[in-house]
Design a protein around this nucleic acid. Structure first.
Length: 197
DNA sequence: CGTTCGATGCACT
DNA sequence: GTGCATCGAACGT
């Protein structure tokens, strides 16, 4: 079943941890693609220098200040769309970045969208830019309601997975906080392979 | 396996 | 004009 708004209206670190093992789904005219979330990062409030809310409210980060359970999608490095789930009550700007999935449905579609040959299944959605490309998530999906849209997160009742906490990746600021969570042992988790073994 | 580096668009100062 | 919540090719070990 699709996660309800009350799931997202909680402290961001709890939401982030609980998102591991849930299923991100995106439906388009081309078909349905989905995968089990195995890696996330939390971005919490204006006091978090790495959070997009750090400069205060702007046109771009407006979704972070809105109600929980909505998608915050933005373009970074001019190339990649990154997808977040907005958390906490309205007015508390925070979100969880989805960084990696283990593909479940629509694998042929993912391959087609990735456009490269010879990519192992566990690499199709490995990394935040790769997974949005594989699922066909674009800026048009910004602000969608994750509780009732073609872009949503579902609970398929899978086994609970052991979760490792670590520092967030790719940042120059806010490197101290261990706000990255990853399913231990998953081949789809981003970063150096040695980190997972 | 690891490191380096260019591509690329837009929000923000 | 500057700086990214990244990726993949190229090349070194």
């Amino acid at each position: 079943m699709t996660l309800r708004r009350s799931f997202y209206a909680r402290p961001t670190l709890e939401v982030a941890r609980d998102l591991i093992g849930k299923v991100l789904v995106h439906e388009t005219r081309a078909g349905l693609a989905s995968g089990v979330i195995v890696e996330v990062e939390a971005y919490i409030g204006e006091s978090d220098p790495a959070c997009h809310a750090a400069p205060g409210p702007t046109a771009r980060n407006a979704p972070l200040y809105g109600p929980p359970g909505f998608a915050y999608v933005y373009l970074n490095y001019g190339i990649h769309c990154l997808v977040n789930a907005v958390t906490e009550p309205k007015g508390s700007p925070a979100a969880v970045l989805i960084r990696a999935l283990e593909p479940t449905e629509g694998i042929a579609l993912m391959r087609k969208r990735r456009g490269r040959s010879g990519v192992p299944v566990h690499d199709l959605c490995r990394g935040p830019g790769n997974l949005t490309r594989a699922l066909g998530i674009t800026l048009a999906d910004n602000r969608l309601d994750l509780t009732k849209s073609t872009l949503r997160i579902e609970d398929h009742g899978g086994p609970s997975r052991p979760v490792a906490f670590s520092r967030r990746i790719g940042l120059n600021v806010g490197v101290e906080a261990e706000w990255r969570m990853a399913a231990i042992g998953s081949p789809a988790v981003s970063g150096p392979r040695s980190r997972t073994r």
